[in-house]
Design a protein around this nucleic acid. Structure first.
Lengths: 204, 204, 204, 204
DNA sequence: CATGAATGAGTATTCATTCAT
DNA sequence: TATGAATGAATACTCATTCAT
């Protein structure tokens, strides 16, 4: 019969809870709006626990950024790996972007990251690297997509990737700052517009 | 012989200087990054002067937001009023969005506004109203543009307007958080892509 | 009839009180032992008042050090300027060293300064400069004293000055760490011993 | 065949290593400057090991103080026990005080002890007792020295002992807070000055 | 005995805001 | 109206200590 949590497991659980709390709070209140105290408390721990798991507030923020970007890249890479027809691929792009909109908004978090990167050199460096990786993966996706459609991309795939990412962040920011969430499928529609692809019937 | 400034004029000058300083500082360091002290000092006044002219830090931020959006709307309205050929109209869209990139970045400020609006109900309300006006004006522009080109817009002009605005903010954020400014004309190119219009020769 | 304190006077008073509190608390509890909170509170002000008057804890410490050393140097300089017979000069040396032993101990403060200087480069630099000035003034005193006594100093006056200062600090540290204050006149006696001068009758 | 360390030996080794680390760190950074974590880590153990061996940070500091003073007393006692000529005895006094200046500075540690004793009653008591023993031993040395030189001490040997000890600490503090170490032989020279003994040729 | 995760009180410092001048 | 001294709550971070493993 299984004992209580081992030390490793317990530490991992603490880390995870802190990361979850932090993600929510950063998304809701921004980098400045989420205090270490609040993060720790809302995860059910003391400030000390926070600092025994993360070097600083910046560190947890960066770790979150990293994890977020990795997850997106991962999702895109999986899409690329599949061998499915174009229309289905199209319908999946949306999901890779707007996943997990349930308890907190990744788009907002992303905007927050970028805003912070504008102001902090070391943030900027880390961010730039991740962004580049992400962008390249997405450019690959775009290339593949157009190959499947047997058409030529309307612009350099890397630029298209940049535009798609900017659009995602921008719409997310806009949607949240306005009222509720964006009209379902709006982001996809916008992306297809950029790519010059007719929206698939029934997707609107 | 010219008198000294009247009291009214003097007050206006103080306000104006404070607003200018605040705009620059908010753009550079974000809402939290610009302290009242700094704003006042960099305008050549004391904290007291600030509080004589504005009720709070939030108030000046809101006023700035208002002025910024109004200026954009105004610029767009003027574009609409002109009777110029389509190509020239196109080349002016960019400028209406990214003007004054010299000493501070409106795109960033806009992102900051939206982020702040996500977190503050009363901000959000003010922002939503302004955004709607702005969007509608831009939608009008889009409609007119397509009329001139004698083509059908690829989507609801209001949606296109939303997308253009999101794109502008998103690219601005992306550009600043990465390295230097965006490739010249990149924003325009992206907007034309969205609208399904071929980039004009020589604009790239 | 005099009004309330002017702003300048009021500010000065605050500064003075804060400096006094800090001096006492540093002497009693060391650099680390005196918190900014405590300093401010014991002076009857808020933490904010402290920071509106001093840039940092280090700053007030350094200012105290400076003032303390200046006062000592001043006192010695005045002794030098007088035209009094040797015996009286001798009897005054003590007082110049142990002044104001009433509410807090400068010797301790001095030891604290030096200890801190051992650990902080910028402290060390400031301290070294002050020490050198102080030492040179005291060396001048020693030279003059021996001239009056018509004798040759037993060693280089600068070395003698260093020794006298070390002795003062060391004895002060010793005296305080043991029980009560040192036996009256003990420091003088020690100094005269170093200088090879017989203690004057009645001084013991 | 040699066994592994017995439990006792292993415990002793842990204690010893912790004490060594602590001595170095206290000397370098002061009482506050050396954290339990650092002490343990730099000895190659965890915080837990520290608290298995010492009741508290204060306890290890006190134990260090005790050991340090005991070692000095022991060294002096051995000097006393020897039957060597005066000049050689003189040259050995220095070493008994300033030994082990290699990897960390006892003079500084001593100042730190005294400063701490000023602030903590129980520290003060322990310190006073040790100091008295030390002083008396040194006073014995002084007496013996003058007997050998066939001269009368210039003052009460106990006072002379106090002065020598204060001088040592004071010069050590001064030397470290200034730039590099003291001029070689300076402490000895100073002590001889206090005792009214001409520096031996070649010692300078 | 040793580990190291977690605690929680403590530290220096910042900053929007107030108010007597 | 403008000043700037003072407030006090908030913030990121440190560290001696405890205790389940």
């Amino acid at each position: 019969m299984k004992q209580r949590l081992t030390r490793q497991e317990s530490r991992l659980e603490t880390r995870t809870r802190l990361l979850d709390s932090a993600a929510q709070l950063f998304a809701r209140g921004g980098y400045e709006g989420a205090s270490v105290d609040l993060i720790a408390e809302s995860a059910g721990y003391s400030k000390g626990a926070f600092y025994s798991n993360f070097e600083s507030k910046e560190a947890i923020f960066l770790e979150l950024l990293d994890a977020h970007k990795r997850r997106e890249i991962e999702a895109l890479a999986q899409l690329l790996a599949q061998d499915i027809p174009a229309p289905e691929l199209l319908s999946q792009i949306r999901n890779s972007e707007t996943i997990r909109g349930s308890d907190f908004d990744f788009g907002l978090l992303s905007a927050e990251f970028q805003l912070q990167a504008c102001r902090d050199k070391s943030f900027a460096k880390t961010y730039a690297k991740l962004h580049r990786t992400h962008r390249d993966t997405m450019a690959g996706l775009v290339t593949k997509l157009f190959a499947k459609l047997d058409r030529k991309p309307p612009s350099d795939p890397k630029d298209l990737a940049d535009i798609i990412m900017a659009l995602t962040t921008g719409l997310s920011l806009q949607g949240t700052s306005m009222q509720g969430p964006l009209r379902k499928g709006f982001v996809t529609e916008a992306i297809l517009l950029v790519l010059g692809i007719e929206p698939i019937e029934g997707d609107r």
